[in-house]
Design a protein around this nucleic acid. Structure first.
Lengths: 131, 131
DNA sequence: TATATTTTTAGGAATGATTCCTACTATTAA
DNA sequence: TTAATAGTAGGAATCATTCCTAAAAATATA
């Protein structure tokens, strides 16, 4: 089912760029940056490769309400925070994996709960200081 | 700041329809159904009214990754489940409000965390039985 | 009640993110 | 060293949603 990928300069550049950033850029930001190295790369190529990498579990796709999806090269499960003021996204350093939520949620539910998606929101320190 | 709304047949019909459903329909589903009563209502009107009602806290807007937003006439805080197989969404009967997550998340974070968005996913009982 | 003011509407155009299409190119296999 | 396959650029298409505008409805006012 899962066939091996042919190597591609485009995919490598996307992955390298993503690994260099901690702010979980959008497809468009990735596109704009990778373009510096591969000027005629297309946005479709960026999306296709991000989808491929996501499917293989090599990166994570983060969906926040309304806004563009963001991509994260750190695949170890962790939680995210999004600033309501500036829209920035960052990782949270949380030990707890909140896995008991699933048990609690499953109690009075007759389907099967696999997992949950959680993200935190508020105001980042940068915005608190700047305003 | 918050001025009173003029009454409108369209908004009333949208609210009435939403109150009649427990499956948190999308704007398009609402549109298709309200059209039975008001044949020339426009989709823009549905969106505008849903946005207005959401802003006033009379309904909730639910955003799941990728898919269309859904609307919920039950404003009391509660959690949602989305079936990965059929895409259906339903309420979960959970006592716990998981408010301690915010404290845990705030510990090593230097911004201000207001809240979190959480939804559960898995396979609904209907799909488990049907497959 | 008649009229002025303000909101709301229908209908459709515009937007933004993302996906899809196609002929061409790079990579791997034989 | 050519055949087979996957990947690409570029742009069109899609989908959800928002925006625009002149006309209609609801409320306020005379």
């Amino acid at each position: 089912m899962e066939q091996k990928l042919k190597k591609s300069r485009q995919r490598d550049a996307i992955m390298t760029f993503l690994l260099s950033r901690k702010d979980h850029p959008t497809a468009d930001t990735i596109y704009e940056n990778v373009k510096k190295e591969i000027p005629n790369i297309s946005l479709g190529t960026v999306y296709r490769n991000l989808a491929q990498l996501t499917e293989r579990g090599e990166i994570l796709k983060l969906s926040f309400d309304g806004t563009s999806d963001r991509y994260d090269a750190t695949t170890k499960p962790h939680y995210h925070f999004r600033c309501r003021n500036c829209g920035s996204v960052c990782d949270l350093d949380i030990e707890d994996d909140f896995s008991d939520m699933i048990e609690v949620a499953s109690k009075k539910f007759d389907g099967f709960i696999e997992g949950h998606t959680t993200f935190f929101f508020g105001c980042c320190s940068h915005c608190i200081n700047g305003l």
